[in-house]
Write a protein that binds this DNA or RNA. Structure first.
Lengths: 159, 159
DNA sequence: TTTTTCATCGTATAATTATTCTATTTTTGA
DNA sequence: TCAAAAATAGAATAATTATACGATGAAAAA
C-alpha cells in the first residue's frame, strides 16, 4: 500500500537519475534509502512500472523508464547550440505538435540537417524549405523541452 | 557484414511487427526466415540494435525497438503499394493527426506524388522534402488504417 | 604470399531476472 | 467484527540472457 507506492516512486526517481545496471545494484540503492525487499519483489515492481532494460551508448545495460525507452542519450552536443545559433536561426514557434523555425534565406535545409543528425526522439522529422523548417514533434512533448534540446534557451533575458 | 546487417534489418522488422517474448522465440522466427544463429549471437544483435525488453500492457514482456518506428517488410505485394515499397520507403511514424514517412534521399517527393494521386479521404495532404514526407491525416484516423491504405500491412504469420 | 588485425559467431557457462509456491497482511462486504 | 478475497512479498528455482573464450574467416598490411 503506502509502503509499496512510495517505493515505486523512489524506484522511478533512482532509475531516471542514475545508471542502474542490475536489480542487485538497485536493491542496494534502495536499501540505503531504507527499503528492505528482495530481488523477486523488485522484479515485480519493475514489471509494474514498465521499466525496461536497454543497452546504452556506453555498451552497458541500464534500466530506463517507459518514456525514455527510445531515448539514447547522446551528450556529445555541447557545440550543437553554437552551431544552431550561428546558422541563420531567426525564430521558433509552436502549434500543437508542430514547430516552425524561421531562418535566414537559404539556411533552412542545412539547419534541418543539423537537427536531423541528432536523432532526437522528441522530433519525429523535419521538412525544410528555403527559410522555414517544419518540425513534427512527438505527442505531448512540451515546447520548452524542444527549445532545450535545440539550445534555444534564453540565458540572459526575458522579453 | 552483408549477412549480419540484413539479419539486423529482419530483426527490426520482426520486433516491430509482432510481439516477441523471448530470444528463443525470436530465434525460431528467424530460422523460418532462413537465418541460422544461436541465442548468444541474437543477444549480441539485440544489444547492438538497442532493442529493449519491456513489460507490455498485457503483462507480458516483449521486445521493443528504441523508438516507435515501424519498419516494413520489403515483400512484393503486386498492387499500388508495390510502388511505395520499392521507391525508397524507410519508415513511418505517427503523431496525432500527422504521419511522417522517411525515405531514402531524394525519394520523398515522388513518393508523395504517388500518395496524392490516390486521393485518400483520410489523407488531407502531403508535404515532401528530400527524404521526409509529412502526411496530414483526417482527424481521428487510426494509424493502422493509414498503414493499411498505404499497404504497410503486417504480414505476420508462420507459413 | 604471409602475417596481422579485426569482426563475427558458437559453445559453455556465468549472471541475471521472472515466476511458482506459500505465507502473511490488508481490504472488502455483510 | 468476521470471513472471504485480494494484495504483497520472501524463498527457492526455473527461465532467460549476457559474456568469456576460442575458432574461423575476411580484409589489410607487409
Amino acid at each position: 500500500m503506502k509502503k509499496k507506492t512510495s517505493r515505486l516512486d523512489v524506484i522511478k526517481m533512482i532509475v531516471s537519475s542514475q545508471q542502474v545496471g542490475s536489480q542487485e545494484e538497485l536493491l542496494g540503492i534502495l536499501k540505503n534509502e531504507g527499503f528492505e525487499l528482495t530481488q523477486a519483489t523488485l522484479s515485480r515492481d519493475l514489471k509494474q512500472l514498465k521499466v525496461a532494460k536497454a543497452a546504452s551508448v556506453t555498451g552497458k545495460y541500464v534500466y530506463v523508464l517507459p518514456n525514455d525507452i527510445m531515448y539514447v542519450r547522446n551528450v556529445a552536443s555541447t557545440n550543437a547550440s553554437e552551431m544552431l545559433m550561428t546558422s541563420g536561426f531567426i525564430s521558433i514557434q509552436f502549434s500543437g505538435n508542430l514547430a516552425v523555425i524561421k531562418t535566414k534565406p537559404g539556411y533552412a535545409s542545412s539547419m534541418a540537417y543539423d537537427i536531423d543528425i541528432h536523432n532526437y526522439t522528441q522530433i519525429l522529422g523535419t521538412i525544410a524549405g528555403d527559410d522555414t523548417i517544419l518540425l513534427v514533434l512527438k505527442e505531448g512533448t512540451p515546447p520548452a523541452q524542444i527549445c532545450k534540446l535545440l539550445s534555444f534557451v534564453n540565458k540572459d533575458n526575458d522579453k
